[in-house]
Amino acid sequence: MDSKISLEGEIALFRPELKKIDVLNSEEFQASLLSLMEGKTRLVLDLSMVQFIDSSGLGKIITALRSLREKGGEMRICSVQPPVQVLFTMVRLGEIVGIDPDRETAALELGKSTGAGSTR
């Protein structure tokens, strides 16, 4: 899977370079995500490249969020494109996870919520 993975301080940044996260590639997406999350408790999921997510992709994001919280960690999502925003608004994803306009804001918010400082 083409993904941009980077670590900024204590916070992992993950930007999947995919147009779609759906039933065809959601397992691969999850594998990359879990691999990145190993040993980490804070994650920013940058969806700037993603134009479509279905229920399968949504399920993987929820699983990752649950996994992080079980370890006492947290996740934020940023740079959501309009078609994906339609899904997130419809299912009210924002009620259970923070959604920010860009990765800087996401990292800042993540720092606040976990007591750590900004990574930038």
Partner: peptide
């Protein structure tokens, strides 16, 4: 519902909402 943090089953939720 998303708050159930289930691994799957959100297809019905999406169809219901849409």
């Amino acid at each position: 519902p998303l708050s159930s943090f289930a691994d799957s089953g959100y297809g019905r939720l999406i169809m219901d909402k849409a």
